[in-house]
């Protein structure tokens, strides 16, 4: 087996998700190469070379790969995928954007959001918002897989892989980057945080999410939201936890004013400890919460913040 892992890059740095994807690659077994593509990605390449289990880091550093746009990235992977049995990426918005293009160009299926490895060709993946787990077997010559990073523990960074530059440069006349508006936050990223505190429709409005901020600061937590809160316009979509947002599995998940719709549970039910704060003691969220506190969140949150 020979596996190529597409690295996630954030602002020139290696994203934490990649260490989890390499762990999934190790579970499959075989040689593992990591592709670091972007513009000005040397630091990311060096970080990838330290990931345990990686034999080679391949670096495509060129302006055409900046922001990892789907069209050039798909073409690059098409050039590089020969000789590999598996191509893996995290199920991030980049992995989800790019990998299906490779699969289609190679005339193979893609397996999305894999959460378990049964063997080199057999995988577990959630369907129906995680309300069923499918075991699927791929007989395609190349397995193209996106990995749910929260389902695999990150590998350590004590390795020392070789780093080689790739001079493949593809053309892209179809798409161009215009701008990015990224949320500025000193808090940990939602996908990788050890503690997540999320607000739902019960928060009432976007302003009230500030009540979560103080607690998040004390706990070193990321702040999330339910789809209902996003749909109501309280907070931006990149905070959404759920089937159609981010899938998280922190050590502690605190759900505030969230009823617990199926689609939200799909995004957080693998958290180690779940706390629910809701004024409705019949809310479905209490059926999955380890600790439930029934009451008015506008009383509870300030008290919780002051006592932590």
């Amino acid at each position: 087996m020979s596996i190529l892992v597409l690295a996630d890059i954030n602002d020139g740095q290696l994203a934490s998700a990649t260490a989890h994807v390499v762990a999934a690659a190790k579970a499959i077994g075989g040689d593992i190469d990591v592709l670091v593509a972007g513009e000005g990605v040397q630091a990311a390449a060096e970080a990838a070379a330290k990931l345990d289990g990686v034999s080679k880091v391949r670096v495509a550093d060129n302006a055409v790969y900046a922001y990892q746009l789907a069209e050039p990235m798909g073409a690059l992977l098409m050039e590089l995928a020969n000789g590999y049995t598996h191509v893996l990426a995290s199920a991030s918005t980049t992995g989800k954007n790019v990998l299906p293009r490779l699969a289609a160009l190679k005339d193979v299926s893609q397996l999305s959001d894999v959460i378990g490895i049964e063997g080199a060709d057999t995988f577990l993946r959630p369907i129906y918002a995680g309300n069923a787990i499918a075991t699927v077997k791929s007989d395609d010559p190349l397995k193209v897989i996106t990995v749910r990073s929260s389902a695999f523990d990150a590998v350590a960074d004590s390795g020392s892989a070789t780093v080689e530059a790739i001079d493949v440069v593809v053309e892209n006349t179809q798409s161009s980057f215009v701008k990015e508006e990224l949320a500025q936050s000193d808090r940990p990223e939602l996908g990788g945080a050890k503690v997540v505190i999320s607000g739902g429709r019960g928060m009432g409005n976007g302003e009230n999410f500030k009540l979560l901020d103080g607690i998040a600061d004390k706990l070193g937590a990321a702040v999330g939201a339910s789809r209902a809160a996003v749909d109501a316009g309280f907070v931006p979509n990149d905070m959404q936890v759920g089937q159609t947002g981010k899938i998280v599995a922190p050590d502690l998940y605190i759900a505030v004013g969230i009823s617990g719709a199926i689609q939200h549970l799909a995004g957080m039910k693998d958290s180690k400890v779940i706390v629910a704060i809701n004024k409705d003691d019949e809310a479905p969220i209490f059926q999955v919460a380890d600790y439930g506190l029934v009451g008015d969140l506008f009383d509870i949150l300030p008290e919780l913040e002051s006592k932590l």
Binding site: N131, I133, S138
Partner: peptide, 23 residues
Amino acid sequence: SKVSLLKVESPAERKGGIKVASV
């Protein structure tokens, strides 16, 4: 398709815990 569905299972059920009375 070359992908076959071997089986479909319900995910491990998460059991509800306890209600606490105060912060």
